[in-house]
Write a protein that binds this DNA or RNA. Structure first.
Length: 271
DNA sequence: CAGAGCACCTGTGGGC
DNA sequence: TGCCCACAGGTGCTCT
């Protein structure tokens, strides 16, 4: 489900609700949610700790504790909701429950059960496997162009690789490649400096705009208690197979690239 | 290193 | 109507 803008939306929504609260308990109706750690081991690390920061790194949600961090990944269908005391809410697919001071509960619901959370004393191992943040000041067009050099992979799977750049997923990669006029199967290193700059600009612009609209709801992304993202109305190729390209009217096509459904305009994104 | 295939899960929608 | 298959905002592993 969530890519960078959706995770950012969740983080912004949860931050004021979680800051300063202390963790008083943890249960895992789906014990694999803490894999590879055992739920009891996770609980021992976090119960009694206070949440001093809530932020995003790539598609990870990080809860900074007074000792160590909780990292949380929603994968495809994960949702986080803060429930007040007595607030039942939808009990389906609950994989984890973090009990907080004042009896509030941070509830992790996840239909497909791919989502995970864990404890890290030190964030270095997480940082080591993540590329730059696309919205950070350090992520310049020049740096992006340099990163592409020597990469013989197809551009789409490279952009989906969290170790190359952190936070992009299937929606925003398709949208950014369309905006930059680049075919998803094009070789990364073959892009000109001008194309690389156009792609850099598209990535940042699209992510920023989507964050302003609280992300994209296609099937079931929600934050808070049922709010949905509005960036869907801005999508130009994703899930628009057969509809006319908004630039040239050529029908948008759907192909498969790196085992992922991939949308593009065959005219605007000639290989 | 790059890419394919598959595994992890459950629900939904299309075709017959 | 019901069944079966393909597919889904993600990632990690194995194998070629």
């Amino acid at each position: 489900m969530p890519e960078l803008p959706e995770v950012e939306t969740v983080v912004r929504h949860l931050r004021p609700q979680l800051l300063g609260r202390t963790i008083t308990g943890f249960t895992a109706p789906w014990p694999k949610v803490t894999a590879p750690a055992h739920p009891d081991a996770f609980a021992r690390e976090v119960v009694g700790r206070t949440i001093g920061g809530v932020r995003r790194r790539g598609k990870f949600i990080l809860l900074q504790l007074d000792r160590g961090h909780i990292h949380l990944h929603l994968r495809m269908t994960g949702r986080l909701v803060l429930a007040s005391p007595g607030d039942e809410g939808d009990q389906r697919h609950v994989t984890a429950v973090v009990t907080l001071s004042d009896s509030h509960r941070l509830i992790f619901r996840d239909m497909r059960k791919f989502g995970r959370l864990g404890y890290l004393a030190d964030l270095a191992p997480l940082e080591a496997k993540l590329g730059p943040e696309p919205l950070s000041p350090e992520f310049t067009a020049e740096r992006f162009y340099q990163l592409l050099q020597g990469r013989r992979r197809q551009i789409k799977p490279l952009l989906l690789d969290q170790g190359f750049i952190a936070g992009l997923g299937n929606i925003y990669v398709d949208e950014a490649l369309f905006a930059a006029g680049i075919h998803p199967r094009a070789e990364a290193a073959s892009q000109s400096a001008a194309k690389a700059e156009a792609l850099h600009r598209a990535i940042r612009h699209i992510l920023q705009r989507s964050i302003e609209k609280n992300g994209t709801t296609i099937i079931n992304f929600q934050y808070g208690t049922g709010s949905t993202g509005r960036f869907r109305e801005d999508l130009r190729v994703f899930r628009r197979e057969g509809e006319p390209c908004l630039v040239c009217s050529t029908p948008v096509v759907k192909i498969r690239v790196a085992q992922r459904g991939t949308h593009l305009c065959p005219t605007c994104q000639a290989i």
